[in-house]
Design a protein around this nucleic acid. Structure first.
Length: 218
DNA sequence: GCCAACGTTGGC
DNA sequence: GCCAACGTTGGC
């Protein structure tokens, strides 16, 4: 089901010299297997939870509205959309690691109240992002060749809203707290790799954030 | 709207 | 390959 969609994520950044910069990814997920400290099963291999940013408020780029919030995803047929327009190698590489059935937070960025709005599911693994070849598209990339496409996308499906919106400000408080006194959000990519629009979460991070739904706002 | 952080470009 | 200039992201 070729999901109808819109455009999300703004990622600009066009052509770095090389392509297939290949493995830059595993980024936050590595962590040596046997430190002395906390050896939890943690990320046994590649990440299984994700956070993906998109802008829920109108903003025009080349006359095209970049707005795509969780309500927009929810309103689509099948509540499904492709996640196109990612033009950053690290973010792209993370998308290429995604597996069908994995879950991702829908994060609202560049807006009045940034934060986590809901949960979605990966329903189709990485494939060619057609917008890179479309001259009319905001994310057209003249340097990408049909026979060797640079950019990928995945399909995501709406799952649910958070029981309560989890604002960035609250996540940041926990992050600082956990950094001072060891806690699950200590190394959260949202804070350590601020501009990454597609990022991995450890299951500890993911579960902790889910647990906040039932807590009072900090 | 400002601007810090940070990724990319291009001169050398 | 260094690094300054430039452009983008995204919080505030």
């Amino acid at each position: 089901m070729p999901p109808k969609k819109r455009s999300k994520v703004s990622e600009k950044t066009t052509k770095p010299g090389k392509d297939e910069d290949g493995s830059q990814e595993a980024a936050g997920s590595k962590r040596k297997a046997n430190g002395a400290t906390k050896v939890k099963p943690k990320s046994a291999g590649s990440p299984e939870c994700w956070l993906m940013k998109s802008e829920p408020e109108s903003r025009f780029e080349n006359g095209i509205d970049m707005k795509f919030g969780i309500e927009d995803l929810k309103a689509l047929p099948d509540q499904t959309s492709c996640w196109d327009g990612v033009r950053n190698y690290q973010a792209r590489n993370f998308m290429r690691q995604m597996k069908e059935g994995q879950v991702a937070f829908f994060y609202h960025s560049n807006c009045k109240e940034p934060g986590i709005a809901g949960v979605m599911k990966i329903v189709k693994e990485a494939y060619v992002d057609h917008t890179q070849f479309d001259k009319k598209d905001v994310h057209f990339d003249a340097s990408s060749k049909r026979d060797n496409p640079k950019w990928s996308m995945v399909d995501v499906q709406y799952q649910r809203m958070m029981k309560r919106f989890i604002p960035l400000s609250e996540l940041k408080k926990y992050h600082l707290q956990h950094r001072a006194k060891e806690g699950p959000l200590k190394d959260m990519a949202l804070f350590t790799r601020a501009r990454l629009s597609v990022q991995p979460l450890t299951t500890e991070e993911f579960d902790f954030i889910l647990s906040l739904e039932d807590e009072k706002p900090l």
